[in-house]
Design a protein around this nucleic acid. Structure first.
Lengths: 108, 108
DNA sequence: CCGTATCCCTCACGATACTG
DNA sequence: CAGTATCGTGAGGGATACGG
């Protein structure tokens, strides 16, 4: 695996690529939780109810690979890891907030 | 399930519900295609590259059930069906456009 | 604490022949 | 033209024991 920017006979449109980045089941919830600042791994596990370890790790790695979050490790005992949004990630804030408002008004 | 407490990050359910409505692989692309007016079924099949009949039908039904699109049938031979966005659906336009711009800037 | 490593399984999606 | 019916696949996701 690695870069899959291959365009086959059919071109994937931008919207679908975006979903590949933030369309995961938990991505937006994680990003949302990071809007008010850095969070430790265990904090995210609490802040995003019902998520499990494997998925949290997976989504965070995906987001890190896509430049949405930054992972900072502190060589403490026990280990400390902090996640923060990048500039790129922060730019999603108004969008996700609007989406959220839309959902509150129409879905829930 | 009936968790109505509005804690700081306890709103995560809403985001997941929203994804249930417009988080499908093709939903946003279809909505996007409908931004510039009504489209017939076959038009959508052409406008949304690589989608297949089953998925287009499925997403459209889902969206109709969620009040995002309206389906109008004309008793012609051969049949004519037009899909349009509802007010609720149109309100997604700025959001999806912003998301699209975000993606163009950062993903593609 | 912060993850990794497994196992398992559902269901979302794909392809396509067929129909009113 | 606008769908329906059917079969098949794998990737996405859940649970949890284990390791540094």
């Amino acid at each position: 695996m690695g870069d899959k920017k291959n365009k086959k006979s059919g071109e994937r449109c931008a919207l679908q690529e975006i979903l590949g980045v933030i369309g995961g089941k938990w991505s937006m919830s994680i990003i949302y939780a990071l809007f008010d600042g850095k969070k430790r791994f265990s904090e995210l596990e609490r802040l995003v109810p019902n998520i499990n370890t494997r998925m949290l790790v997976k989504e965070l790695k995906n987001m890190e690979a896509n430049g949405i979050v930054v992972r900072k490790v502190f060589a403490t005992v026990p280990p400390t890891v902090e996640y923060t949004l990048t500039t790129k990630g922060k730019k999603l804030e108004p969008i996700i907030n609007e989406l959220y408002k839309w959902g509150v008004e129409y879905v829930g």
